[in-house]
Simulated assay, not measured.
Amino acid sequence: MTRALPAQARDAMIIEQSWREPERFAAIFDRYYPEIHGYAARRLGSSLADDVAAETFLIAFDKRIGYDVARTDARPWLYGIASNLIARHHRAEVRQYRALAKAGTEDLAEDHADRVAGVVDAVARKLRLAQALAEIADGDRDVLLLVAWAELTSEEAGRALGIPAGTARSRLHRARKRIQAALGEDGS
């Protein structure tokens, strides 16, 4: 009985097969589109997520011939492409974080039940977090969000962004310190 390969190991095989049979790339799309779309939506909002996710896979398809099949997991590669596209939308992202940080709790609460103490505390924390994200250096924010939202390791985030693993770890550390400072010494 043949043992099934893990999904990541199959990524490289599928991409390599797609060099000869382009339709095989659909398996990579099907496997990772929801994840890439979700990440783009969290970074840029739902209005741009469809475009960024679709463009990520168009670029990946066009560049599949150059994919390093020694890298069995395609996730960091795809997140790298998505991060580059998101960087193009950087100004809009920063404006979104700043607007969220400036928004009052009255704007976020739709009815009286939403104004309970727990929600107000959560909104206040969200506003501080949004302000901190807007103030973090671009590279630091990219690593932080790839680790926090895309659940990549710092090494995978480094690969995705084309930077050394040590640089990714340093950026992640700096970003976490800034977030902790914004949320208070104890992180609350």
Score class of each variant (00 low, 15 high):
Val119Cys: 04
Phe29Tyr: 13
Asp121Glu: 14
Ala134Ser: 14
Ala103Gly: 09
Asn84Glu: 15
Ile36His: 11
Arg24Phe: 07
Ala113Glu: 15
Tyr33Ser: 06
Arg42Thr: 08
Glu23Asn: 03
Asp111Val: 03
Phe25Tyr: 09
Ser47Asn: 14
Gln17Cys: 12
Val94Glu: 07
Tyr97Met: 09
Pro76Met: 08
His89Trp: 00
Glu35His: 05
Ser47His: 14
Ile81Trp: 10
Gly104Cys: 07
Leu58Trp: 02
Ala74Met: 03
Ser83Asp: 14
Trp77Ile: 01
Arg88His: 11
Ala134Gly: 15
Val119Gly: 03
Ala122Val: 03
Arg88Leu: 06
Glu106Asn: 02
Gly104Phe: 04
His89Val: 00
Gln131Trp: 12
Glu93Gln: 11
Ala130Glu: 07
Ala74Phe: 04
Asp114Leu: 04
Ala117Lys: 13
Ala134Pro: 02
Leu129His: 10
His112Met: 13
Gly38Arg: 11
Glu106Phe: 03
Arg31Met: 05
Tyr32Glu: 12
Val116Glu: 14
Pro22Asp: 14
Ala109Glu: 11
Val119Glu: 15
Val120Pro: 05
Asp114Ala: 12
Glu55Pro: 01
Ala124Arg: 12
Gln131Lys: 15
Leu85Cys: 12
Ala60Asn: 10
His37Phe: 13
Ile14Asn: 12
Asn84His: 15
Arg115Ala: 13
Asp50Ile: 00
Tyr97Arg: 03
Ala132Asn: 11
Ala74Gly: 08
Ala87Lys: 11
Ala26Glu: 15
His89Ile: 00
Leu133Tyr: 14
Asp68Ser: 04
Arg64Asn: 05
Ala27Trp: 05
Thr105Ile: 13
Glu23Ser: 10
Glu35Ala: 09
Ile65Glu: 15
Val116Ala: 10
Ala41Leu: 08
Ile86Gly: 02
Arg128Thr: 04
Gln131Asp: 15
Arg75Asp: 12
Ser18Glu: 13
Arg20Phe: 03
Arg125His: 13
Val94Lys: 02
Ser83Leu: 10
Arg128Ile: 08
Tyr67Trp: 08
Tyr39Met: 01
Ala74Asp: 11
Asp51Ser: 11
Glu55Cys: 04
Gly45Arg: 07
Glu110Ala: 08
Arg20Met: 09
Ala74Cys: 15
Val69Ser: 08
His89Gly: 01
His89Gln: 09
His89Met: 02
Val116Ile: 09
Asp62His: 08
Ile86Tyr: 07
Glu16Trp: 00
Ala26Gln: 15
Ala130Phe: 03
Arg128Tyr: 05
Leu48Trp: 07
Asp68Phe: 00
Ala99Ile: 02
Asp62Thr: 02
Ser18Cys: 01
Arg91Cys: 02
Ile36Arg: 04
Arg91Trp: 01
Leu85Pro: 04
Phe29His: 14
Arg98Gly: 00
Glu106Trp: 10
